[in-house]
Design a protein around this nucleic acid. Structure first.
Length: 511
RNA sequence: GGGGUGGUAGCUCAGCCGGUUAGAGCAGCGGACUCAUAAUCCGUGGGUCGCGGGUUCGAGCCCCGCCCACCCUACCA
């Protein structure tokens, strides 16, 4: 019955950008949707604190790693208001008391299965990437990503016996026990598994980690590879490895949960769809049921990068254009497969088109007419006899199901698209039935027109109420305004625009 | 080097298992209406479906090669 959804936990060496906003808004839309449909929902997000990159970033600023992590984690947690997020839990892997015991338990469970072993390892390691590079990958002896010479590292590390799990992984992914969406990503993972899985290092020396990270149980000279501990957050947060109450909580959301979904970006599939399930199988813990992989957001046609100077601060965008506009763009325009290009212009166009002109105007004209022609009172007919009325009523009735279907497939664009289509149908319905003409007819003595006017207005109010309701997962603030505006039972509130058109920024800001 | 994804109207994208004249929205053009946030509604122009072959009665969809963009991953077959 339950729905548990997570985002990846970003490492916090800088402020959140719009790419993470996409991920967390998608997860939020899912959480709100299922909550709205009456399911028990738990939505987790948090920060990956134990990355060596955080140590480096802190050094560069001359502050302690703890300070840096705390400060930047606050920026991520602070997205809650600006993005209207409804997460139930926020875990910080370096300071949350639940995390350490849970990850230790996970480690020991893998160890007990005989899947952790020590091996001598030597290689060229880039601190920026936190990974080893083969000689051939280096460009002029330097890391292709960061342009610096990697360190030569030689040490004994713990390894995880990933090679052992190829068949298990293939089985769970092929059978759908672990669903990977979109399908193309699933195929990608399967071919990745087929290409051969090698054991991977799950620890590093304390020295290389600058003393930062989760100590390996029983081996104080080593700390866990950051991915090992970071992935663990998905189960340590709901209570794995905690006390009795925690374990009960863990059973509710994970072990016995109906849906356990991870929303992640395409760059970290291997960790989530290969390493993580293997670790869980090894530890005897249930697997996630769904992994949804989103692509990236580009800005003005270019990849997001600090060096390019095109980092978009989602908080600044919402301050300028509003939370609903940004959420709406993320959920309405980003395709399920393929990168999406963000521009302020598109954000504005989308919001004005759908939310102001389409939905907002519909609500406004509907409520206004109820006031103008009926003094704010809705007279609902007992039955619908008109063919057009029935068709329209059917459209409204179908909408929730269409949204369900789309969101079950993680297709946000299809879900919001179905919504917009229904709003369009409502605006057409207004014009087709021309309530103003019916009002005229009634004034001229036509009782038939009067009855007809009641019916049309009642259906429109119903439509607006349905829209207010169904909009909740996507644009919660606007949804609430619409619900309030449409009133209850036979009364509607005083008309006032629920979503004023957005103005484009003045051209003087260019260049 | 290997694997993958995308390349469909000016723009953003749909096109399920191959099946009539390839769709939507926006932008453009023309018209209607007045309840409404200069909103809404109707009509309309616009496409060699990246390129070249092939399979088929029939291909945007399948196969082969190539080009472009992006992602993952490696010197292992």
């Amino acid at each position: 019955m339950s729905f548990y959804v997570t985002t990846a936990i970003p490492y916090v060496n800088s402020a959140p950008h719009i790419g993470f906003a996409l991920e967390i808004v998608e997860a939020d839309a899912l959480a709100r949707h299922h909550r709205h449909r009456g399911k028990p929902v738990r939505f987790l997000t948090g920060t990956d604190d134990n990355s060596l990159k955080n140590v480096k970033a802190a050094q560069a600023e001359g502050i302690t790693t703890e300070e840096l992590v705390a400060r930047n984690a606050a920026l991520f947690e602070g997205l809650r208001g600006p993005l209207a997020l409804s997460f139930d839990d926020f875990i910080k892997t370096s300071s949350d008391p639940r995390h350490l015991p849970g990850v230790e338990k996970l480690w020991r469970a893998c160890e007990a299965s005989g899947d952790l072993y020590k091996k001598h390892y030597e290689g060229k390691y880039c601190v920026g990437c936190e990974q080893f590079y083969a000689e051939a990958d280096l460009v002029d002896g330097k890391c292709p990503e960061h342009g610096v010479e990697p360190q030569v590292v030689s040490e004994e590390n713990w390894f995880f016996r990933l090679s052992k799990y190829a068949d298990d992984l293939k089985r769970v992914i092929t059978s759908g026990e672990l669903t990977i969406e979109p399908e193309s990503r699933k195929n990608e993972v399967l071919s990745l598994i087929d290409s051969g899985l090698q054991d991977f290092s799950v620890s590093r020396s304390v020295a290389r980690a600058h003393g930062w990270g989760v100590p390996v149980p029983g081996d104080p000279g080593q700390v866990m590879y950051v991915w090992f501990d970071a992935l663990g957050n998905y189960i340590t947060a709901p209570g794995y490895g905690g006390g009795e109450d925690d374990e009960q909580n863990f059973d509710t959301w994970w072990t016995n949960g109906e849906t356990r979904a991870h929303v992640i970006g395409k760059g970290i599939i291997r960790f989530h769809a290969v390493y993580w399930p293997a670790m869980l199988i090894s530890a005897g813990v249930n697997l996630p049921t769904h992994i949804f992989v989103h692509d990236y957001i580009t800005v003005d046609g270019k990849k997001i990068g600090k060096s390019l100077g095109n980092v978009i601060d989602p908080v600044a965008v919402t301050a300028e254009y509003g939370t609903d506009a940004l959420r709406w763009w993320l959920l309405r325009e980003v395709p399920k497969v393929g990168d999406a290009d963000f521009t302020i212009d598109r954000l504005i166009t989308r919001a004005n088109e759908d939310l102001a002109n389409g939905l907002g105007n519909l609500v406004n004209r509907t409520v206004s007419m109820v006031h103008r022609y009926r003094g704010g009172t809705v007279n609902t007919p007992d039955t619908l006899v008109d063919e057009g009325d029935r068709t329209f009523a059917q459209t409204l009735q179908n909408l929730p199901k269409e949204i369900d279907t789309a969101l079950n497939a993680f297709d946000f664009r299809a879900a919001t698209g179905a919504f917009v289509k229904a709003v369009d149908a409502a605006n057409k319905y207004v014009d087709t039935n021309a309530p103003w003409a019916l009002a005229k007819g009634e004034k001229g003595g036509s009782a038939v027109d009067g009855v007809r006017l009641d019916t049309v207005l009642a259906l429109l109010v119903k439509a607006c109420r349905v829209f207010g309701d169904e909009l909740t997962p996507f644009a919660p603030a606007l949804a609430e305004k619409i619900v309030a505006q449409c009133g209850e039972a036979e009364k509607v509130a005083t008309p006032a625009p629920v979503f004023p058109r957005l103005e484009a920024p003045t051209a003087t800001t260019e260049g």
